[in-house]
Amino acid sequence: MNDSWQQFLHMGGYARYVWSAYGIAAAVMLANVVAPIVALARIKRRIAREEFVDD
């Protein structure tokens, strides 16, 4: 690893604050993207099984 990369990761001594903030943000965004895709697939499966034909 070269110096400028290490300097970037070091964030002027604030690495744990900056990277934890962005890490949590990345996790929340990922959950936001995955949740509707999973939900849509699950709903389609349930409808395909014709669970709602008679009620």
């Binding site: 964030m11 002027g12 001594g13 604030y14 604050y17 900056v18 903030a21 962005y22 943000a25």
Partner: peptide
């Protein structure tokens, strides 16, 4: 504030 201000680029859009 130094580099810690970089949190603004996720904090303000949120």
């Amino acid at each position: 504030q130094g580099d810690v201000f970089r949190i603004i680029y996720i904090h303000v859009p949120s």
